[in-house]
Design a protein around this nucleic acid. Structure first.
Length: 109
DNA sequence: TCAATGACCTGCC
DNA sequence: GGGCAGGCCATTG
């Protein structure tokens, strides 16, 4: 809500925006890519502020591939529908073939 | 200013 | 191999 996003948030937004189509990543992966492996919580917090930004938060899930942030979305299965719409198989708030659709910025970038 | 919370992760038992 | 507890950074009350 403030221009302070130029810090950790901006980087997180940038990485999330760079996520390819039909691909997902985890908070820890982004945090680690930014050099803050233990600051994964901040990444999630950034997503909370991603409201209004062009950040596809629905492509960001936890380490277990579980759509933990699904509660923060409007609908109940909106996040799941978005992922399935991109070709990502989601079942019970869980990303199937997570190892396959997983996108590690530290490796891909 | 201090204390508590949070879309998590890593390490130890 | 599975489960539990601690910690980290930032935001909000």
């Amino acid at each position: 809500m403030k221009p302070e996003t130029l810090g950790f948030f901006e980087k997180v937004y940038d990485v999330v925006k760079l996520i390819p189509y039909g691909r997902v990543t985890s908070y820890g992966a982004i945090a680690k890519y930014l050099g803050a492996t233990r600051s994964a919580r901040i990444v999630g917090y950034a997503m909370n502020n991603s409201h209004g930004n062009d950040v596809p938060a629905h492509r960001v899930v936890n380490r277990n591939g579980l759509l933990t942030g699904k509660h923060h979305f409007e609908g109940t299965n909106l996040m799941q529908q978005l992922l399935e719409n991109e070709g990502v198989t989601v079942y019970d708030n869980q990303v199937q073939d997570f190892d396959t659709v997983f996108w590690d910025p530290s490796k891909e970038l």
